[in-house]
């Protein structure tokens, strides 16, 4: 029998994502794929597999599912509430998902979380990728009673975590095609404005609400439609900034005031609505250096893996732990009463 997940329930923001489809930009199809590329790297490190394995992206959504076989999972991205047959699981770690056990994941503060399966999700490849491109109507969101095939897994390690990696709330921008249209006064004001992450956001873009006036330009309503890239901060006619994400349009006529560095997008994606952000321009050469450094760090994440539970032989007071159920005394994991690897 094929290894598979059965979805018991899913809210609209749940979809299968991989690295997307490069090469269709000229036909108007943006690359799409996972919004949070750091999450893909973290899941890959936790499960010891390539970051190209398709995963379940939870864009502020909730999902309940079970597996046909014993499987391994990893939970990355925005902190979410996860339980295995009712027992809490640590976020940011790898775990066993026994056959038939019920995994429930629901949002805590909001933001994009990711559920990775060892072996990856392997639905049919369409136009070169397994990911759904919701904005393009290519594939669809995951729904209740979907059965999603899971690839073969040769690994066996679970109970691993990555060190805490707190993300700040400064979005660093490089100048974009229309940055100049806004004028230095407006650009200066942008850097001195607090922005609140709006509840309105999806895989196409995230609205940010400025504390104060918007950033409209009269000229901006009649500019030529021009190439757009993920991270572009588009200013719509009413002056509201939208940070465009992986399913963004490929061209657009609203001016972009700058482009958020790709390595800063996880900050925005993992935050809950109501989080305050600032924007700061960096020179292109600095942006390139930051991006390269982060790519190097992402590629070496597996070196940072730590055991989620300490080896019992190294723990002096074993009696504090209920080893049979795997539920801990509650104070060994950052004071979070959560269950580790089964």
């Amino acid at each position: 029998m094929t290894r598979a997940l059965t979805i018991h329930s899913a809210t609209p923001g749940v979809s299968i994502q991989d690295m997307g489809r490069a090469g269709y930009l000229a036909q108007g199809l943006s690359r799409g794929g996972a919004a949070d590329l750091l999450a893909m790297a973290e899941g890959a490190a936790l499960l010891g597999q390539p970051d190209t394995c398709a995963a379940l992206e939870l864009a502020g959504g909730a999902v309940a599912l079970s597996a046909s076989d014993d499987m391994r999972i990893a939970l990355t991205g925005a902190d979410m509430r996860a339980t295995l047959d009712g027992a809490p699981l640590v976020w940011g770690a790898s775990h066993a998902l026994p056959a038939g056990a019920r995994l429930d994941i629901s949002p805590l503060r909001g933001g994009f979380g990711t559920l990775h399966l060892a072996g990856g999700l392997v639905p049919t490849v369409t136009m070169g990728a397994r990911s759904a491109h919701l904005a393009a109507g290519l594939g669809r969101a995951v729904q209740a009673s979907d059965v999603i095939p899971v690839g073969a897994d040769t690994g066996h390690r679970t109970g691993l975590r990555l060190p805490e990696n707190p993300l700040d709330t400064t979005l660093r921008l490089v100048p974009s095609l229309q940055t100049r249209l806004f004028g230095t006064d407006t650009l200066d004001r942008l850097e001195h404005t607090a922005f609140t992450k709006d509840a309105r956001g999806n895989r196409m873009g995230q609205r940010l609400v400025p504390d104060g006036d918007g950033f409209a330009t009269a000229e901006g309503l009649s500019i030529l439609s021009e190439t757009i890239v993920p991270g572009d901060v588009q200013i719509t006619g009413d002056g509201m900034p939208y940070v465009l994400l992986s399913e963004c349009q490929t061209t657009g006529g609203y001016p972009r005031i700058g482009t958020v560095l790709p390595c800063d997008l996880p900050k925005l994606l993992r935050a809950g609505p109501g989080t305050a952000f600032t924007m700061r321009f960096v020179p292109l050469e600095d942006g390139v250096a930051l991006e390269r450094a982060e790519a190097t760090r992402r590629a070496s994440l597996s070196r940072l893996l730590q055991p989620l539970l300490r080896d019992p032989r190294e723990i002096p007071d074993l009696l504090r732990y209920q080893l049979v159920s795997g539920v801990t005394a509650g104070d060994d994991l950052d004071q979070r009463p959560q269950r580790g690897a089964a």
């Binding site: 108007g28 199809l29 290519l138 439609s225 349009q249 490929t250 657009g252």
Partner: peptide
């Protein structure tokens, strides 16, 4: 003149 914004969409 170009295909863009969304898949297959003509300007």
């Amino acid at each position: 003149q170009t295909i863009g914004f969304a898949p297959g969409q003509p300007y």
